[in-house]
Design a protein around this nucleic acid. Sequence first.
DNA 1: GGGGACGGCCTTTTT
DNA 2: GGCCGTCCCC
Length: 758
Amino acid sequence: MAITIKPVIEASYLSGLNEMQKKAVTHTEGPSIVVAGAGSGKTKVLTARIAHLLKQNKAAADEILALTFTNKAAAEMRDRITQVVGNGTKAIWLGTFHSVFMKLLRYEANSLGYPSNFSIYDTDDSKSLIKQIIKGIDLDEKVYKPSVILARISHAKNRLIGPKEYAADPTYQKEDAYMRMARFSEIFIKYTHYCLQAGAMDFDDLLVQTHKLLYDYPALSEKYQQQFRYIFIDEFQDTNLVQYRIAKKLAAYHQNICVVGDDAQSIYAFRGADIQNILHFTHDYPDHQMIKLEQNYRSTQHIVDAANRIISYNERQLKKKVWTSNPMGAPIQVLRTLSDMEESRLIADNILAEKLNHQLLYRDFAILYRTNNQSRNFEEALRKKNIPYRIIGGLSFYQRKEIKDLLAYLRLVVNHNDTEAFRRIINFPRRGIGTTTINKIFSISAEKMVPLWTVLGNASDFLSGTTAAAVARFVTLIHTATLKLEKENAYAIADYMAKASGLLKELHEDKTVEGLTRYEHIQELLNSIKQFVDHSDHHDPSLGSFLQEVSLITSEDKETTKEDSITLMTIHAAKGLEFKCVYLVGMEEELFPSSMMLGSKADLEEERRLFYVAVTRAQLKLTLSYALSRYRFGKLANVQPSRFLKEMGWDNTATKAIAKSIATDSSRTGKPMATQKQSNKARTIGPILAPATLRIRSSTDATAIQVGHTVQHLHFGVGKVLQLVESSAMRKAVILFHKFGEKTLLLNYAKLEILPST
DNA sequence: GGGGACGGCCTTTTT
DNA sequence: GGCCGTCCCC
């Protein structure tokens, strides 16, 4: 037997880590909490840690459970682990809380009274069901708003309060009465009942039912406790009570639980996230190890400073000092425009100029906003200037009507009692089954406590000849496809259903552009089902499995284009990402902070953390913008600049902290005093009004530069002007830099100084 | 039961 | 400005 000699050389995944990071990676045993500031290499640590476990044979892949919040984060992590350890990472239980526990529930749902092919209700399904319940008990939809009801139900569930506990709690009852929703708990009870009867779980159920499984079935929880030797939770500050309790239960045996998070980046309180979980963790695991990662590797000094200044306004926070040894970098820029339309045009121009001047790619840019509907103006402006872009979020492929329609057919094939799928497609395409009939079906189902499919099977008992026949045809349609489940794959059934349901025909007959696109979308969905079937070496290729997986796919996951393009998204969606240049737009009161969040201090602090997240996405340059007027409800309204701008250090009249850093910055470049003064003044005025003068900075009059001049550029250093190009009001210059070679720069934007030619 | 016209309402963020 | 729901008439 050869003696294994411990390698002296450090493992590759450890090199390039700082001492704290290394500690976080190699301290694998026992509970630990890593408080990781923005840009401190959190993902790197997490992936290195998992790689470390695998390489050191401390655990097999399927003994590791790693939970994230987005599919994107999960995919990236898997990718990076694979890069270090090679193949064999597929067995790691790595995914979002929802997707991992959905898989677990697929095996165990029967114990809970659900079919293993349970449907998953998305927000629309849930709302639709709630709406029916409200109608059914004769309440006013305007008082009992389905979206508000659902939010309240969700909130209760995430705090592990079921409908019965809720109804029995006088505090909640009082609250409801105060909110003029005295009969809320009645809706909650019915909602829960109907979901169960339909064999459907909503998003929250995926967690709540898992929780129930683990806490009520000891034998089962023991099995999983033994299995998961090492447990990781990413973005721990965003966990809610159920999630925390699930993780705690699973970690009970091995106790190797490692959570990574940053309280300053907690932005999901609205869906039940509780920063207190960080405190709970330290309390529940008194022998935990705490590691703080405070060095920011991502951003320039200016950006880190601004971020620290912002977060200091929050009272609730863990002590942490984020610092960086990166250069000062470009000053933070604030742009003001007259209107929201102008804002988007200006930023489109600005991006083009920056891209050219700093030789960047489109993918180095991101435009971030508070609300999805702000993307509209930017899409238009970018399209007009032929700037490629992609939007993350908004209406995703899987939220399109035609897609949801076909999926609803398939859901019904797999789960006959899925009432929301049924409601969606029973009369689309038209088959003469109207509201009267549908109501009749549902009220019989409710009265006799009989599931949907049973009622449908006895349609002739309570419906007249033609209608009963129509229902019978529908039942046959679904049933025929169900018979294929055993022998045929998901694609074959979907393809059959698209045709047999008449959906394809209906869309095909619509010769409008939209109709054509919808038709193509269906084809695209069929293609993706085919792919799912073809690449099923590591998953169950059944239709049921496909449907469940698809229900958890959100917009951001579908990246069709690899083309170089700028990214547009909400700040929420941007969490965990980084871009060289970030444009944070719509910095206005009532928009950001949102008017909905001005009510309480806690809410405002969450908005501020959101602002913190946005600012810390930027690596090199951050630009903020606000407009003086904006269209709201179809009307042009005057708006005020966001309070966050001031908190960041920006001042409209007497520029303070930021102006100071700008002064330092320009003095470094060794500009002559006159220029420095001028640029300082330009910034003291701050944002500039008229579009013509809206430029980043021009230390020299653009018209002064001539061929043959020797010039100095902030980044590229000294060079010689070879050529001037006039094109559509933009003056460009081709300059040969000593160190960087030939570059084409826009004179309106380039920070050029003419040097005396000697 | 279906389709068209009108009026009200809204806008937060996501798995 | 746009979506959704309701009302009214065929």
